[in-house]
């Protein structure tokens, strides 16, 4: 076997082996440790299967994800709309500048008491808080994307009489899309965080509520199963968005690669 091949096989073995080794290590340690805080991994997994497959899906997982989707969706639509307006108009940018700077600087959880004061503790409050927090990354990235449209493309549009909504749909938005996606990635992580916190602070259902309630009643294995579920959800949501991005922005990566050729 030649050395290059041997090295490649070693790398693949490491890539698969280390995570397995970490899991195995946790397994062996947790079974042996018999710690109150860190129950045995097999116990956590059994509890996970008992709790989440699929008993609490309807009562906790679906409401959580629905609020997340609603808040995230509103944020993306509003962020792109406002971001486009600000990106196209220097005056609007200057007028709204300090407000945007301030809005995005407020630490997101600080908005929760505000939401609870004004909207109570229902779904509306949670969706609102998620939407407000997710708005800023999408908005700011859209502004950058819209401002960064290649001037030659805008000249092309002018010469060929492409204006108004047509110019937005065919030139400005596609061109800004890579940036918009970058904003959406940041927003999605924030959405998940706010989903969990809002349920911990003000809810009687949802994954966040379940996790905190389990801890309060010292159902440690249940608590861990919820943490694992949140980890899995975080991973899957990020992966889904990355997949969507890869499909939608196929031209972007290919064009970049060909420019570097």
């Amino acid at each position: 076997m030649n050395p290059a091949r041997r090295r490649r096989i070693l790398l693949i073995a490491l890539e698969a082996g280390v995570p397995l080794a970490v899991l195995a290590g946790w397994w062996v340690w947790s079974v042996g440790a018999d710690s109150f805080y860190f129950p045995a991994l097999p116990t956590i997994l059994t509890t996970f299967a008992d709790t989440w497959l699929f008993e609490r899906v309807g009562s906790d997982v679906v409401p959580s994800l629905a609020r997340l989707a609603a808040g995230f969706g509103i944020a993306v639509v509003a962020g792109v709309a406002i971001g486009t307006a600000l990106g196209l108009s220097p005056v609007a940018r200057r007028v709204a500048g300090p407000l945007v700077e301030f809005g995005r600087a407020v630490p997101p959880p600080a908005l929760l008491p505000f939401g609870m004061l004004v909207l109570g503790v229902g779904d509306a409050m949670k969706v609102f808080v998620i939407a407000v927090v997710c708005l800023w990354p999408v908005l700011l990235n859209t502004v950058d994307g819209v401002r960064g449209v290649d001037p030659t493309m805008l000249d092309t549009a002018r010469v060929y009489g492409i204006g108004g909504l047509e110019r937005l749909r065919r030139i400005v938005w596609p061109s800004a899309l890579p940036q918009v996606f970058a904003g959406m990635r940041t927003s999605l992580s924030l959405a998940l965080i706010l989903m969990v916190i809002s349920e911990m602070v003000a809810s009687t259902e949802g994954i966040g509520y379940f996790v905190l309630e389990s801890q309060r009643s010292f159902a440690i294995a249940e608590m861990w199963s919820g943490i694992v579920l949140l980890g899995v959800l975080g991973y899957l949501l990020n992966a889904a968005l990355a997949l969507l991005e890869r499909r939608v922005l196929r031209w972007h990566r290919a064009a970049l690669a060909s420019a570097l050729r």
């Binding site: 992580s189 861990w224 980890g231 991973y235």
Partner: peptide
Amino acid sequence: VVRYRAFRAVIEFLRPIPSVALVPLAILV
């Protein structure tokens, strides 16, 4: 490269965990 590839998958799994999921664990410990 060896170290990076060995830990890449672990990082990719841990990174998206919403940190607030650990709130109960933090209270507990």
